[in-house]
Simulated assay, not measured.
Amino acid sequence: MRARTRTGGLLALTAATALILGACSGGTDDTGGETDAATSDGGGEKITIGIKFDQPGLGFKEGDTYTGFDTDVARYVAEKLGYSEDQIEWKEAPSAQRETLLSTDQVDMIFATYSITDKRKETVAFAGPYFVAGQDLLVAEDNTDIKGPEDLEGKNLCSVTGSTSAQRIKDEYAAGVQLLEQPGYAECVTALLSGQVDAVTTDDIILAGLAAQPANKGKVKVVGAPFSTERYGVGIPQSSDKCEDINAAITEMIEDGSWEEAITTNTEGTGYTPNASENPPTPDACA
């Protein structure tokens, strides 16, 4: 009698244990198959990448679609780091907020026409560069008079409020140039097309992205005489250990032709070609 009681207790304990283990497992799906507890919520590890949302041809958001050269490089690098497209969370990274986003760990990487400078290295780190831009001019397609910043003497030049690029031309190349500031480069292009200004200035690839927009194609062109050097890097937190992996991905993108393809796709129809003496770049050694 006592033996039967002990056996019944063991069976009850075994059944209870099975129930507990079953509750801790992934359970079953609607088809009766088992689900994976780690992925049953549709999640998985994410990577947060900062880009511009308002720079056509570089970083541009339209609805739920993200396009541009910076965005293409970011996708390529993320994939090489082990992240698929649906694991990327895109976050807007305006110029004035980039250091804050990185130093407070709101993003893992930033691809946003982010020039590598010693001043910025005081608070953030960089991989790359993945592109070397230069300040240039955007003019009307039929303009044959403006070939460089020296030709802007007595003419009207547009740039974005807060930018130093137009003032640099006035200080160093054409003291008599008349400056017009607009809130964005789209407004500068509008002023150019209407004849209000003779040229627009900023980094050459930004100008090429603007020229590639359907509304502007065939109407404007990049002069193609850059007069500065802007080394676009991948901004990362100083605590990041991903610099070497990012550099390896950039190098692979250049070597397999994807880098050139991304440039061509995002500047198609503008006649733009990157400065061949600077591009494609070789990433710096990681600190």
Rank of each mutant, 00 (worst) to 15 (best):
K155C: 06
E230M: 04
D198Y: 08
A248W: 00
C188D: 13
I49L: 12
Y173I: 07
A262I: 00
T202V: 13
Y130E: 05
Y76S: 09
R231Q: 12
E252G: 06
I20Y: 12
G59K: 01
S103V: 10
F131A: 01
R120H: 09
F69G: 01
V77G: 06
I20C: 09
K61W: 02
F60C: 04
S40C: 08
R120K: 15
G8D: 06
T282V: 13
P280M: 03
T28M: 06
Y114G: 03
G269P: 11
E92C: 04
T28F: 13
D204G: 05
G271Q: 11
A96W: 07
T7P: 00
E89K: 03
S228D: 13
P274T: 08
G235H: 09
E153N: 11
L180P: 01
A23W: 08
G63T: 03
T265M: 04
C24V: 05
A186R: 06
A276Y: 01
T265Y: 10
T117H: 01
D29C: 13
I110W: 11
L210G: 03
N247P: 08
T17C: 12
K61T: 05
A225V: 12
N216M: 02
T273M: 05
L152T: 10
T39A: 11
A199E: 08
D70K: 01
P129G: 03
E172D: 13
V222D: 02
L19T: 10
A212E: 07
K121S: 14
E62P: 00
V223E: 09
I110V: 14
G8M: 13
Q178I: 12
P94E: 10
G59P: 07
T113C: 05
N247M: 03
V139K: 06
S163R: 03
I254T: 04
E261Y: 07
A287N: 14
E62D: 15
N247H: 10
Y83F: 15
E181Q: 15
A127I: 00
R75C: 04
Q87N: 12
T273C: 01
F111W: 06
E85G: 03
D245Q: 14
A174T: 13
Y185G: 13
E260I: 05
D284K: 06
C188S: 08
T5M: 12
E150D: 14
V73F: 02
R231Y: 04
T35H: 05
A212K: 09
L192E: 12
A12I: 15
N143S: 09
E89F: 00
T123L: 12
A16Q: 00
M109F: 06
G68D: 07
D86G: 06
Q135A: 10
G209V: 04
D136L: 10
F131Y: 14
